[in-house]
């Protein structure tokens, strides 16, 4: 009997030691994961590009994929793009230095889908597939980098030829090519001059005189750049087209009105008034 009790006692002690060791290693594992996870949490920004076979031109969209929280292997995140903000959630699988993610959008929107990506060496790379395979752009690819949004009033559009891709008029052109007269249709685009990348609408208080000779597109771009600096996610592609390709632009919110400075508000009011006048009167019989 004595031997039995000693054996049981020893085995119990061994068992508890083993348990303790196990608990300790599990705790150590959790601490390491959290520190690495902090590197994953944040805003991942870049270009959301169509990956479908088509002749059509499908513009890239600027995406801000915000990884909000990682608990164990559960991830909660948010995608901000094209004026939409979707809550996404899913799983993370860590293998060595690589973190693989599978995140799902809610599924109650026609354009919802699944994000599959991995983060390694500070770069996020992956693809998105729509739940509804019948929509035109049912797959997109992206390579994102971590960027924190910070409001900077001095940010300017880069020097470029700015024209409105989406509101062209078809003009009939008659041209003489190689001595032969040819008729063809030519798209006429609205374009903006250099003022849109030379004058800062967030720091320069405009006067009426300065705006009177501006074309409507120039007024629009100057006004929307104010919103872009504050990270407005533009719903209209007609507005988005000027910012999605800009390096510093990070869409953060669908409404930034409460972030505007008083100078910006005054400029927006003035620019809007001139835009309205341009809409009403630029090409009509009125004055």
């Amino acid at each position: 009997m004595k031997k039995f009790y000693i054996l049981t006692f020893l085995s119990l002690i061994l068992a508890s030691c083993h348990e303790k060791a196990k608990v300790q290693t599990v705790k150590e594992e959790m601490v390491t994961t959290t520190a690495d996870d902090l590197k994953l949490i944040g805003s991942w920004v870049g270009s959301f590009n169509a990956d479908v076979k088509t002749e059509d031109y499908i513009p890239n969209i600027k995406i801000n994929l915000i990884i909000k929280n990682i608990e164990g292997d559960s991830v909660s995140a948010q995608s901000v793009l094209a004026g939409n903000s979707r809550v996404i959630s899913g799983k993370i699988i860590r293998t060595g230095q690589i973190a693989k993610f599978e995140l799902f959008e809610p599924g109650n929107d026609k354009y919802d889908g699944k994000f599959t990506f991995e983060i390694a060496n500070g770069t996020l790379k992956g693809f998105w597939e729509a739940f509804d395979k019948t929509i035109k752009v049912n797959r997109r690819v992206f390579t994102l980098t971590k960027k924190a949004f910070v409001y900077n009033a001095d940010l300017m559009l880069p020097e470029n030829d700015y024209y409105d891709e989406y509101n062209s008029k078809i003009e009939k052109v008659i041209d003489t090519i190689d001595g032969k007269e040819e008729k063809y249709d030519q798209a006429q685009y609205r374009y903006a001059d250099e003022i849109v990348y030379k004058v800062n609408s967030s720091t320069h208080a405009f006067t009426e005189d300065e705006l009177k000779n501006l074309k409507k597109l120039e007024l629009e771009i100057l006004r929307n750049t104010i919103y872009a600096r504050h990270g407005l996610s533009f719903k209209k592609k007609g507005f988005r087209q000027f910012f999605d390709y800009v390096d510093w632009y990070i869409p953060v919110s669908g409404n930034v009105d409460d972030q505007l400075t008083s100078l910006e508000r005054a400029n927006i009011k003035l620019l809007s008034r001139f835009e309205q006048y341009a809409t009403d009167s630029y090409d009509t019989f009125g004055r």
């Binding site: 006067t207 009426e208 009167s281």
Partner: peptide, 21 residues
């Protein structure tokens, strides 16, 4: 038609939109 745009009286209607100065 143009004249009628200015009825009723307003500080900001039509051409006045860009003459606020």
């Amino acid at each position: 038609e143009l004249t009628l745009k200015y009825i009723p009286f307003s500080n900001t209607v039509s051409f006045l939109a860009i003459k606020q100065t």
